[in-house]
């Protein structure tokens, strides 16, 4: 029954969406922004930072709907199946789109969406437990390479962004280690602080919250707030890991609506309020227009496909 009514309403929506008049006075009511992660996480904070500024730029209120679960895919499925009229948009980081399709069977792909804009970028860094047997990058490399199961590293679960991040770092230094997944950020930080695990790859916010030792950044350029920490590229082991996200809409959304959203997104990302909020969250407010945003995710997806295959995480 749900599907019949949905089909009917989609048909009706299609009839309307085809007329450009509707697209031109977009938006004339509240816009729902689906965030595919529960409240309090990084994506949620980024979304809530954008929410007010996006509302200002659109001239309509923007309501955040958290729909977490299954590594962010549940919320992205919701966005893929929504009416393509621009009144339900998604704010998603790269992982559900560029990594999860390689890890599990999903009813969507990269092509199910139009890419509106990138709105933030969070670089990942390799951090060490205060009780780890290494203090510096060099010691970390030596320790990890000494034996295959010397290094114990944490992640919030197989196939998550921090897992892919540390895999990227380890493949750059040609080392392996023991992967210990945790459920949730709390137990993971606790294990790292207590020395149960040695290292992990996460955003600088996590390192700062728990006062952890950052060994190297997984970026091409140094991070301004960590200007004394070298990048892995400088150290001779190029590895890039990040969580970056932006707005997406279903592929059938009219171009006029996407253009309007992209303009609003650009204004919102450029606003002082958004910049200040993202900076405090140890993220960078970064705008990319749709096509470039798509290109960035395509490249990330390709890299993840290999990493996931190598780690044996491919969907059965």
């Amino acid at each position: 029954m749900r599907t019949t009514i949905r089909t009917l309403s989609l048909l009706a929506a299609g009839a309307f969406a085809a007329t450009s008049a509707v697209a031109q006075d977009y938006p004339n009511r509240q816009v729902n922004m689906v965030i595919p992660f529960p409240p309090g996480g990084n994506t949620d904070l980024m979304g809530r930072a954008l929410q007010a500024e996006l509302a200002k730029a659109l001239g309509q209120s923007v309501v955040v709907i958290n729909k977490g679960g299954a590594g962010g895919t549940l919320g992205v499925i919701e966005v893929s199946a929504t009416r393509p009229d621009g009144y339900t948009i998604g704010l998603t980081p790269n992982n559900p789109l560029t990594a999860q399709p390689h890890v599990q069977k999903l009813p969507y792909s990269m092509d199910s969406f139009k890419y509106v804009c990138l709105s933030y970028y969070v670089p990942y860094v390799v951090m060490a437990s205060p009780r780890a047997p290494f203090k510096t990058w060099q010691e970390f490399v030596t320790f990890s390479k000494a034996k295959n199961d010397n290094l114990i590293y944490a992640s919030p679960g197989p196939g998550t962004q921090p897992h892919l991040g540390i895999l990227s770092a380890l493949s750059a230094i040609k080392a392996e280690g023991v992967h210990v997944p945790f459920t949730g950020a709390g137990p993971m930080s606790q294990a790292l602080l207590a020395g149960t695990v040695h290292a992990m790859s996460e955003s600088t916010a996590v390192a700062k919250a728990s006062n952890l030792n950052v060994l190297a950044t997984q970026t091409n350029e140094r991070i301004p707030s960590l200007s004394n920490v070298p990048t892995m590229k400088e150290l001779g082991f190029p590895s890039e890991a990040f969580s970056a996200g932006g707005l997406i809409v279903p592929a059938a959304t009219p171009d006029a609506v996407v253009a309007r959203l992209q303009k609003a997104c650009q204004d919102a990302v450029a606003s002082d309020g958004y910049k200040a909020a993202t900076e405090k969250l140890n993220a960078t407010a970064r705008f990319l227009p749709g096509p470039e945003f798509r290109k960035m995710f395509d490249a990330d997806s390709k890299a993840n496909a290999e990493a996931v295959k190598k780690a044996g995480l491919v969907a059965k």
């Binding site: 009514i5 009917l8 309403s9 009706a12 929506a13 509707v22 309501v63 709907i65 009144y87």
Partner: peptide
């Protein structure tokens, strides 16, 4: 709280 508005009403109204 955010509760569904209804696809039916959405397609009839907008």
């Amino acid at each position: 709280a955010i509760l569904p508005f209804g696809y039916l009403w959405e397609s009839l109204l907008y």
